[in-house]
Structures are given as C-alpha cells and as structure tokens.
Nucleic acid binder design. Sequence first.
RNA 1: GGUCCCAUCGUCUAGUGGUUAGGACGCUGGCCUCUCACGCCGGAAACCGGGGUUCAACUCCCCGUGGGACUACCA
Length: 480
Amino acid sequence: MRVRFAPSPTGFLHIGNARTAIINYIIAKKHNAEYLLRVEDTDMERSSKESEESIIADLKWLGIEWTEGPDIDKGHGPYRQSERFEIYQKYTDKLLAEKKAYHCYCSQEELDAERAESEAKGIPFTYKRTCLNLSEEKKKQYEAEGRKPTVRFKVNDGEKIEIEDGIKGKVVFESDNIGGDFIIVRSDGVPIYNYIVVIDDLLMEISHVIRGEDHLPNTPKQVMIARALDMPTPKYAHLPLVLGPDKKKLSKRHGITSVDLYKQEGYLPEALMNYIAVLGWSSESGEEILPLEEIIRQIDIDRLGKSSAVFDFVKLKWMNAAYIRNYDLKKITSLFKPFIEKAGYDLSKFDEDYIETIIASVRGNCELLSDIAKLFPIFAEDVPTADEEATAMIASAEGKTALTAAKELIDSDEINSDNFTEITNMIKAKTGLKGKNLFMPVRALLTSVLHGPDLAEMLKLIGFEKIKMRINSAYEKNCV
RNA sequence: GGUCCCAUCGUCUAGUGGUUAGGACGCUGGCCUCUCACGCCGGAAACCGGGGUUCAACUCCCCGUGGGACUACCA
C-alpha cells in the first residue's frame, strides 16, 4: 500500500488539508505503508517556496512523517510537479498522437462568452468542440494571429464512469455531463492538476488516493484520462469535508483555520492531531482522547463517517486543556517556556525547578499554553497589576480589614520568611474573618487574582519578599 | 441551473430490523472546595417529511425536503 498527501503550496496548511494529511498518515501507519509527500505547484501565480516550507514545517510540528518526498527521494521523484514537466510532455504527445487530445485555440474571452450564453439560457455549459477538427490552414492562421493553443482532452460520448469509493461506495458519473472536452495543458504549456495527478499517482505507484470530498467531482475526469492512457486507477476514498459553524467548507472566514495559528495560540500538536483525527468517527469505547497509537490501531477507512463534520473550536480547546493537564511535566514545561518568554520574561533568571513547580501548580488553569501569560506574572512580578475583580475585592470592607491586618503583621515583624505561609490564619485570628470572607480578600491581595490554585501553595511559590511588597503597595493604594 | 455527495440531541458521534435511542463537547442542577479549574452524581436536548417492504423500522427501498461540494487555461 502506498498513499500520498499532495498539498498545493498556495498558503498555510489549513485544517481541511491537515485532516487529509493526518488520515493518510494514520492509515499509512496502520498498514505500514509508504507515505509520499508531493508538492502540487503548477499554479505558478499562487504557489510559493515559502508556502511549501511552512506547510512542511506545520506537518512536522503535527508529528506527521512521510517516507518519501522532496526531501527523501526514493526513486519516484522529482516530487514537485513543477520539476516534472518533461514527464507530462511525453504523455501529452502520446495523447495528441492518438487523437485522444487536441489543440484548442479558443481564447479565454471566447470561452467566457460561450459560458455566459449557456448560463443565460439556463443550460449547463459544455465545450462545443470548436477546435476538434481544425484544418492545418486554420491552425496556421491562429498561430499567425499569435494565439497559443491549450490542449484539450477528448471526452468519449456516452461513457459511464463508475467509481468504487472507499468511503462513499459506488458513485456513477456520465461522461456527457462533465462539461465536455476539458483543458489538460494551458496555453503557456503548464499542465493542469486534473491531468497530471493521474500520471503522478501512477508513476509514484500510489495504491490509495485518500483526499477531500471536494475532489470527488474531479474523479471521473481523472479516470477517463487514466483509461485513455491505458493506465490502472488507484483506489479512491473521499473524505467528508470539514465545515465551519455555518456548515460551509471550513475556510479563513471562519476564523482560525491554519495549523500555524493553532501552534501560535498554544495548542499542543497532539491535541490538534487527536481532535482532527477523531472528527468524523468514534472509537470502539467511545473515548475521544486517545493516544496516536490507539487511533492508528482503531481507525479504518470504513469506520469513517460519510457526512461532513462541523469543526468545533470549543471542543478542541477542551481537548487541549486535557492534554495540558495530563502531559509529562518536564515536557509541558518546556512547551510553556516560549510562551512565558513571549510574555516578556527572561527565563534564564529563573530556576528550572521553580518554573516547573509553577507550571505544575497552574497548568490546570490553562486551556492554551498562551494562558500562562496571565498566570506567570502572579509569581514573577513583585507587584502584579490586579485585575478588576481583585481590585474591587481589595477595596471592599473585608478587603480593607484584611489588608490593615496584613500591614500590621508585616510592620510588627510578626510574620517573617519562615512563617509567612501562615498569613491567612494570622489574619483570621486578628480580624475574625473566615471562610470566603477571609480567603477571597487575602487571595486578591496577595495574588492579584481571585481564581487559581490552592492559596497556600501559591504563597510558597511567590515568596515572602513579594508578599511584603504587595501588602505595602496595596496599603498605600487603598488605606492612605 | 446542471452533476455528485450527505442527512440521529446545538455540535461530534454510537447504533446495521425489536434499545428506556448510548457517549463526548457545550448548556444546566448538585457534591467537592477559600476561588476557578479538575473530579464525581444528576438534568434538559435528536432519529428531516411522506410513502412503501415487514409481525416489527432510526435502521432496508422510493419520492420529496434540506444542507453541501463541484461546475476555471485553481488545486
């Protein structure tokens, strides 16, 4: 078995494509198959090297590995379509010689006009074969006019194309209603996707083409080309589309749809991978958070659903939070670090164990790695700026009572670096506050936020010096 | 418009002729708790419609309806 992922480097890797890449990867792993990466960069205007690089980087970030591709040549290369033009040329010549394709001199404008006419009449557009039997003189004349021909594939009339799709089952098309003879080589000599994909899949010995459902309507064209070339076709499996909340194909306008953005927002690759992989099917047990190995063990093409799935950003976030909670502490700490640095902290100034302890304490309150940006200051800043609710809490009657007591404790040296974690009890003794009325003001005062991990645990990590500064600062602000 | 695909809670799904239609996210009531989160216990929430087939349809068939994709000298 040989599968492939064939992205077009015209932008970032987005969720829809990532799903195709992931499913192919998982299927490949399951069957111990070769996984080929091919770059479909024949759209010269839209393709770019940067885009190819970013897609590759995103695939790697996700943990997807291919066994063959631009960077791993196993004899089926080149792996970029832009480097394979001579190969395609041979097939085009063959098709032309066998009269299975022909040159077409119709201009874009002429075709547009024909199309507009069909639309006005409300009938489906079909190319009228204007150039099918052009005389040599006519061709010469067109050439003299400076027209450059495209190559059109001649579609057989009344042909039935049956596709046995691994997901959809049997799908039948009629050659008569696919729009007529279609262009396989542009007037500038660059071949079209629908054409070369067939050649590449054959030459690269792809046994299973697993791709998005949006390609299903293209499939009959590809099958016809394969037949004309006397080539076998691979097995097809068309994956249902990933949809946005409005049930339309997921795209940029739905918000964050590129893998790179998820990375930047602080999603773990494993979480994204897990979520995307289980979108559209369910495990035997119904569990959804599954290690990759387990997904590989359980998934199979025929276990995949047939209907499109709405991408649930909220559920992904939930899953990410679960991964953050359960990840190996050392590993998750190292993943958090870039986000702490991004928040403006120089980590070389912090002890490794200290950072790890902080992460252990607050990871449960993080859905995204980037959430650390608002939690880390609680430990790192001398006097973090209190958020709105915390400010209000400190300014309340209980807040001032607690604050005054805390100030007295500090000024009288009743508390020191040895016993400061007992401060809550001391304030309790001094003020008579208890329960919520005690803890919330103290929490607000000493941590600047109302929510978070166990208070005593946090105090230990914040340290006496900072506690002192925070009390003094709050006292000046509220009681002077 | 044409071709093709799809159809169970709001969302992701389980279900393959006989089930109190199950689970997950989200929502929600409670417990735990100084708070939030986690965790635990509960709740509301679905078989698109109509015909068949059958003793029996969410399940099979047909027709509607709805949604989607495609309809390029993009992939």
